[in-house]
């Protein structure tokens, strides 16, 4: 059973994706923002992280930087999952090691699951 960590500050979306992914049989943990996400990683080592960018306290980029510093964590597949679609953001995220950059609004939860399966 694949483990997924969702780092996302919007509770409505977190709830929605968690329901969908639970239904699809994934083991899902959620974090409200970057720091909480890093805390979660200590007990829960996911196969894939769905990472939002714009978050309070620690944003997605900072989270990604921290992630890549840790030997244990840096191999985890990270998919940026954001509604910010600026070219510069995409470029930066990929430079920091993100596997893909998805725009939330363009994808239905079904399509998100498909994408996740692609990367597992």
């Amino acid at each position: 059973m694949s483990k997924i960590l969702i780092v996302e500050d919007n509770q409505v979306l977190v709830k929605m994706y968690k329901i969908k992914l639970d239904l699809e049989g994934f083991q899902v943990e959620t974090a409200f923002e970057g720091r909480e996400g890093l805390e979660k990683l200590k007990d829960f080592l996911p196969d894939l992280i769905l990472l939002d960018l714009a978050m309070p306290r620690m944003d997605g980029f900072e989270f990604l930087e921290e992630l890549k510093k840790n030997e244990k964590w840096k191999k985890i597949t990270v998919i940026i999952f954001s509604n910010l679609g600026q070219e510069s953001d995409i470029k930066r995220a990929k430079e920091l090691g993100a596997k893909d950059y998805l725009i939330k609004v363009n994808l239905t939860p079904r399509q998100v699951v498909e994408k996740i399966r692609q990367y597992l």
Binding site: N10, N83, L84, V105, T108
Partner: peptide, 16 residues
């Protein structure tokens, strides 16, 4: 961002 986020939720729940 602010427009897309609620729309993501609407679209997502409708699809589900």
């Amino acid at each position: 961002h602010e427009l897309r986020t609620p729309m993501t939720a609407v679209k997502g729940y409708l699809d589900m």
